[in-house]
Design a protein around this nucleic acid. Sequence first.
DNA 1: ATGAAAGCGCTAACAT
DNA 2: ATGTTAGCGCTTTCAT
Lengths: 347, 347
Amino acid sequence: MAKTVEQIANDLNLSITTVRLVLNGKAEQYRISAKTQQRITHYVTEHGYTVNYTARSLKLNKTDTLGLIIPRLSNPFFSTLAEKLEIRCRAAGYQLMISCTYSDAKYENKLVDALLQRNVDGLFVVPSSRQTQLHHVKMVNRPLVVLDRDFGAEDVSLVVSDNLQGGVQLAQAMLARSLDKGTTLCDEPLYFMAGDTRQPAIKERLKGYQQALLQHGIKAPAEWILQAEHNRREDGVAMMQTFLARHAHAPKAFIASSLPVLEGVLSALRERYGAIPADMNIGTFDEHAMLGFLANNLWSMRQDEDAWAEQAFTLMQRALHGENPLARAIIPMTLIHRRQALSDLSS
Amino acid sequence: MAKTVEQIANDLNLSITTVRLVLNGKAEQYRISAKTQQRITHYVTEHGYTVNYTARSLKLNKTDTLGLIIPRLSNPFFSTLAEKLEIRCRAAGYQLMISCTYSDAKYENKLVDALLQRNVDGLFVVPSSRQTQLHHVKMVNRPLVVLDRDFGAEDVSLVVSDNLQGGVQLAQAMLARSLDKGTTLCDEPLYFMAGDTRQPAIKERLKGYQQALLQHGIKAPAEWILQAEHNRREDGVAMMQTFLARHAHAPKAFIASSLPVLEGVLSALRERYGAIPADMNIGTFDEHAMLGFLANNLWSMRQDEDAWAEQAFTLMQRALHGENPLARAIIPMTLIHRRQALSDLSS
DNA sequence: ATGAAAGCGCTAACAT
DNA sequence: ATGTTAGCGCTTTCAT
């Protein structure tokens, strides 16, 4: 640890107040004599000084620290979000403490407690279940902003993507392509590989897909929709294995409910066929640069992490300032299309 | 905030000591009467209580919090590392504060200061330059573990991958394939797309590549090695554009010095040819599930994040306990090979 | 079996 | 222009 204000004051035979005044740049305002200022600044350049934030926090009852609780950092959507949010918080003078739950409810509740014990000024949370969301709303007696998943708790500020609209748009884009080519949906069904549909974001995406089909006069048959327990890579693998057990061929067109699911789906296909069939039409939620590695015709529904960070922080800041019009922000998604790559050219 | 110990004591007409004793489970030891205990536990279940860690920290001069400073979370290697390290720290009762520098030296130094101000018990840092590394070693008068980049400062604990050996192994595997097929290196040069070679890890990887070539009696010609200012996606783009300006065709075989560089290299190729030539042999450092999206013959050098986390934490813990045999851990890399996918099959 | 008090380093309000 | 002091909530040590 560096020196304390008191030490400096003693060593220089000054009072604590005087030292603090120049340390906080109030020297001019209180007309501290030039030579006193010099002695102090000189001492500090010599011995260094950093405020003890712990003591400061104890006194002021704020830590200038916010907490962010997400499922995993290895999910690119969350790591990007964490980055953007961290930058936004830091611009406003807050440190962001990031922690992961690994989708474990017990863990998640404990994490919230741990961060509260450390007196974070406010908390951003991606809850993993309705139960944990309720826990947080009840236990967190400080500014709370829920992200990504609306399990329907009242009285919280909330930031989510417009998953329903995203689902509609994605499905419509893919259907339009089929219909342009003169194929019908019966020739070329559009499957939906859904992770955990209890998760509100996934549920909405699926609903959007169904709505889009209905607009074409079709009620999606049950066998077009595959489901799984979670939204992980292995769940994607399982769904595609189920599919392949039931069909002779890989699907001509499908939508994955999230990136990890897509990874699993494709790895199962590669396992089976030795390659990812290049003529598949792939739709997925969440954008990632490495999607460009695929040769396929591909649509991805991008979530706007910049807008998320901005909105989430704004809601947080309002709450921190005591203005408390709990609000929910719904952020539009953007469709990105990569055309099928022409494969056989002499490189 | 929840109640304080003092409030509880007042409300119950007990002394602070008595309340603390039962709150800390020392009730039996000090023979607090059963009914006193009951009153207290009842009060707590009613009104709740969480220790104020800030006050505790001020007194004990430790926060049970460690800091991790990395370039970016959106780099999968670092986000995975952050996850593993967070888990390891939490298992030992520490919270990990993760922050990103975006490879900005100024920012990095400020971050270190910010975390020190918050009294983290120790710091893990991936320094972005020799200058910042020296800054940290000098300024951080607490346990410090440097990760990933050895800019050569003395007196620090250090965890790095065995980048030299990794470079050798990767290049050798790729050369072996060529030679098996009867092609010579002259037919099919093995290029190296190097990001910033001032960065020690990159420098070592490149050196390993050169060593491997030498073992085949070849000194890599200057034009086989492309270089850039940084290790970002856009640097990969730039290198491949340079390459394409000088050559009529895409390279038959190359190594990318890191994932972001690879992303850039491939996107430049896709831009140019409309597709990623499937007959290219690709080598890269860092493993990622989405590499399986590529149809190419592909070798990736995986860094063992689990071992990193374990070693880094062990070094940290030693330092925290005052044992101070500054040590460096060098962690082997693992080669992963994906065979070229057979592309034209009826799906 | 229970209580009292000092002190961690800072801030803010009130002296001189 | 500079100095003094109370108190944030906890832990630790010493008294009953």
